[in-house]
């Protein structure tokens, strides 16, 4: 079995608001294996983006890591590393393409300058190397390097910009890429093109990917393993084939039924009653119980333990816990 590249242990991230603390990520355990594509799926407010930002310690000032560890390659604890250590990890070891990054390109800079600037900021001054590497990556992403490098961001389409961002993220040869909703703002055909490119890129470079999205169909299409998040917690983790075929957590089951998709009967699709809990004062016990069709007394009192149903298939639910 491949080793774990990244291990998140008991991670707790809080955002300060005037009413108290938003428990955005609460006691999360999650591992990313070397060379895999891990899909993280969740609705808005599930904590998936916060998790991504916490890994690289790019959280906004109002947030803090209150507890837990983020081990990279089993040695460095990113949750407690000093800034200079983090600088060596960001972009060189782990790169992040944040959500809505299409607007992150500087409109006054040519694409080539984005590559040069990024390299310079990380202490790489070899102009020739940067342009060669950028050209190689852009062609791998099926863009014409000469033309694209000379362009300004406004001269590129959304799909092209997204590919430029992927190339930028891979510039310094990172081991891992975190992509937060990379295809959300794109049209159907562009989304398909980017998904296929990412699969191709993964096959060619074996780069580890953490792919974050609200769209469960995208996870089914691209990921090896998946984690389902809800209200700051990981509810279920497993191989995508297993989780889609036999989802065990009531939330995963409900989420899959709530997607108006092209397959399956429309009669069986339904929304999940109720709304996301208030994360300043989350319900005691399991965070899904107020919306769960199987809620029992214990769910309202005690947090469910995480149990391994089959090797690698983890569920946090009292229905599956041995009491």
């Amino acid at each position: 079995m491949p080793r774990n590249l990244l291990e998140v242990r008991s991670l707790r991230v809080l955002y300060k608001v005037h009413r108290g603390d938003v428990k955005a990520v609460d006691n999360v355990d999650l591992s990313v294996r070397e060379g895999e594509i891990l899909g993280v799926v969740g609705e808005s407010g599930s904590g998936k983006s916060t998790l991504a930002l916490a890994i690289l310690r790019l959280l906004p000032k109002t947030a803090r890591i209150a507890n837990g560890h983020i081990y990279y390659k089993g040695e460095v604890d990113l949750a407690h590393s000093p800034e200079n250590k983090l600088k060596e990890v960001r972009w060189k070891e782990i790169s992040l393409i944040p959500q809505a990054a299409l607007n992150a390109l500087n409109p006054t800079l040519k694409i080539v300058d984005h590559f040069l600037e990024t390299a310079r900021a990380h202490g790489v001054h070899d102009r020739k190397w940067v342009i060669e590497r950028a050209s190689k990556l852009l062609s791998l992403l099926r863009l014409e390097p000469d033309r694209v490098l000379k362009s300004y961001p406004h001269e590129l389409s959304g799909g092209m910009k997204q590919r430029v961002l992927i190339a930028l993220a891979m510039l310094l040869e990172p081991t891992m890429l975190i992509l937060d909703e990379p295809t959300t703002a794109l049209d159907v055909l562009t989304q398909r093109f980017i998904l296929d490119l990412l699969k191709d890129l993964h096959a060619k470079t074996n780069i580890t990917m953490m792919f974050i999205t609200h769209d469960i169909a995208v996870i089914a299409d691209i990921a090896d393993r998946m984690a389902v998040m809800y209200a700051g917690k990981v509810m279920e983790v497993g191989d995508v084939y297993t989780v889609f075929k036999e989802p065990k957590h009531p939330y995963s089951i409900a989420l899959m039924k709530s997607i108006p998709s092209l397959t399956g009967s429309v009669e069986e699709m339904r929304s999940i009653p109720g709304t996301l809990p208030d994360l300043v004062n989350p319900p005691p016990g399991c965070r899904f119980w107020p919306r769960c069709p199987h809620a029992m007394d214990i769910c309202k009192k005690e947090e469910p333990p995480t149990v391994e149903l089959k090797p690698g298939h983890l569920v946090s639910c009292w229905l599956h816990a041995r009491r």
Binding site: A217, A220, D221, F244, T263
Partner: peptide, 21 residues
């Protein structure tokens, strides 16, 4: 081109190739 929430089906889909994107 649309992904569907079924890993086997979604990966089996044969993309009809466009002449131009």
């Amino acid at each position: 081109a649309v992904p569907v929430p079924d890993p086997e089906l979604s990966r089996k889909k044969k993309l009809l190739k466009l002449k131009s994107l």
